[in-house]
């Protein structure tokens, strides 16, 4: 019951990308194909969950004044571990995500959750929060990348999508990323407004 609500919070009400507009850089840069988007989402979810748990464990030990550097070290550690594991086991994905794997460190979602949630709540709650927020992040990335992969290269998961459709390469390039997120965010807000009865 409670977990169901939590999941809804992560995916819809407080979706990190589409509602809170956090972690925009990786979400626009790697959403060129579904594999990349999903891979980045999973990597970030792993880092987010692990760092949330560790930070929550250590929250009583870490002095308030140096908490941010401590958080950063913990997050950077998990990011490096993810990076090495990706290089060893999924080199193709690592190559595609490129610089955005180490840049998970500065993903505002992760430091944001550490500061706002994990440093104030117990381990179990922080674990759930990390998972839920990670799922929300992955979900949004998948939506963006499905749209961009279909429109930009007429493919889905590497397979052909519609026979005879001429893809619009611009959706794979930088401008298409901005247009896609604007569109998705607009739709999310439109639905939200309708629910709250705002008319226009």
């Amino acid at each position: 019951m409670m977990i169901g609500q939590e999941i809804k919070r992560g995916i819809i009400d407080e979706n990190p990308i589409l509602v809170l507009a956090l972690g925009l850089c990786p979400s626009l840069a790697v959403s060129t194909s579904v594999q990349n988007g999903f891979g980045m989402g999973m990597a970030a979810t792993f880092v987010l969950t692990c760092s949330n748990v560790i930070i929550s464990l250590l929250r009583k030990v870490i002095p308030d004044k140096v908490r941010i550097p401590c958080f950063i070290v913990i997050i950077a550690m998990f990011v490096t571990i993810v990076q090495l594991v990706l290089k060893a086991y999924l080199p193709a994905l690592d190559k595609q995500l490129g610089i955005f794997v180490p840049l998970i460190v500065v993903n505002c979602i992760i430091l944001g959750r550490a500061e706002a949630y994990a440093s104030r709540n117990n381990v179990f709650k922080s674990l759930i929060d990390g998972l839920v927020m990670g799922v929300g992040f992955t979900f949004a990335l998948c939506i963006l990348s499905v749209i961009r992969e279909i429109l930009g290269s007429n493919k889905l998961l590497g397979f052909k999508f519609v026979p005879g459709f001429q893809p619009m390469t611009v959706f794979i390039l930088a401008p298409g990323g901005f247009f896609t997120i604007a569109f998705v965010m607009g739709v999310v807000r439109y639905i939200g407004n309708r629910k709250r009865g705002v008319r226009r």
Binding site: L58, V61, P69, C70, V73, I74, M77, I81
Partner: peptide, 14 residues
């Protein structure tokens, strides 16, 4: 001490 310890453990794990 805390920051140093955390950094050392992190470096070891990496």
């Amino acid at each position: 001490v805390v920051l140093t310890l955390i950094s050392c453990v992190a470096a070891l794990l990496i």
